[in-house]
């Protein structure tokens, strides 16, 4: 027993680089050899799906891209899945970006979904309004007069020349709002400056780390559903029946979590054993 406790204490002071190697392996291996673990949608993800399901063909959805390459693995899969769902239902999609990199993320997602998968027509089925700096001031501007914030789209076309922009002058003219957000400005600002004052139905997709911050808005009904990080994306992919990047990453995610939990338990045992010994002597 004493030998075993010695081993635990020694393992507790293991060089952290070995832990990095173990984590790298448990993330890498499931990517090469998928396990096909089941994905069950949470209530929050289901709510996003239900809200989009209630939209009719021709309804207008404002989708805001507030993430960049650094958070792409978490947010991009859900943005792609949501666009698939919206285009499947023939909803008209309007895209804004509060982050400069968001514009490139939106372009990539639109190329993949709107152009290659659904053959949608730019200006009639979807429009990329682009990025405007100003954080919450931009949202406030969109709520009061969208035409003042955007006179041209991301490609330099005048909004007056884009057919699907007819009758769109403010946030209240949209039927649905989705914020794909990785931080500030993002979901919280959309709730504060658009969803709450205007009363527009809003859902969101956020990074995992933001979920705790945004969840109170979901609980209070200010936001209708949330997709939390890569698992949220995988759940949405399973709901729309189109597996994507989110689903393929979930095996690695699950295995890595199990190993990390094991490390935490082991680290705690080691800590308590060491503390007991130091008290003893």
């Amino acid at each position: 027993m004493e030998k075993f406790l010695d081993f635990i204490v020694r393992a507790g002071s293991l060089d952290r680089r070995y832990i990095f190697v173990v984590i790298a392996l448990v993330v890498l291996l499931p990517l090469f050899f998928p396990l096909g673990l089941p994905i069950r949608p949470t209530i929050a993800s289901q709510k996003v799906y239900d809200v989009v399901e209630e939209l009719n063909a021709g309804d207008k959805a404002l989708v805001s891209f507030e993430y960049g390459p650094s958070t792409k693995p978490e947010i991009h899969p859900m943005a792609v899945a949501l666009l698939r769902h919206l285009f499947e239902k023939d909803v008209k999609v309007y895209i804004t970006c509060l982050w400069p990199d968001g514009q490139f993320m939106a372009m990539e997602a639109l190329e993949q979904v709107a152009e290659d998968q659904y053959n949608k027509v730019y200006g009639e089925d979807y429009v990329l309004l682009g990025f405007r700096p100003g954080n919450e001031a931009v949202i406030k501007g969109l709520v009061s007069n969208l035409r003042k914030v955007f006179t041209v789209d991301a490609n330099g076309n005048f909004l007056d020349d884009i057919p699907m922009m007819t009758g769109i002058n403010q946030v209240a003219d949209f039927d649905y709002l989705f914020s794909a957000s990785a931080g500030y400005p993002g979901t919280v600002e959309w709730v504060q400056y658009a969803a709450d004052p205007v009363g527009i139905t809003m859902s969101t997709g956020t990074t995992s780390i933001q979920v705790n911050e945004v969840m109170p808005y979901v609980q209070s009904g200010q936001i209708k559903g949330i997709l939390g990080g890569m698992p949220g994306a995988a759940e949405y992919e399973s709901l729309i029946g189109q597996a994507g990047i989110g689903t393929s990453g979930m095996d690695a995610q699950s295995v890595a979590h199990v190993v990390i939990v094991a490390f935490i338990i082991f680290g705690n045992i080691s800590f308590f054993v060491e503390r007991r010994r130091s008290k003893k002597y």
Binding site: I23, A24, V27, L28, L31, S70, T71, K72, P73, E74, T207, S208, I209, Q210, V211, N212, G228, G229, M230, P231, I245, S248, G249, A252, Q253, A256, H257, I260
Partner: peptide
């Protein structure tokens, strides 16, 4: 604790993205 769990989940997602 929930925040920590979500933070770990987020970091692993980013690692998966880079590895992919």
């Amino acid at each position: 604790g929930a925040s920590f769990g979500f933070a770990v989940m987020g970091r692993i997602s980013l690692l998966i993205g880079r590895f992919t």
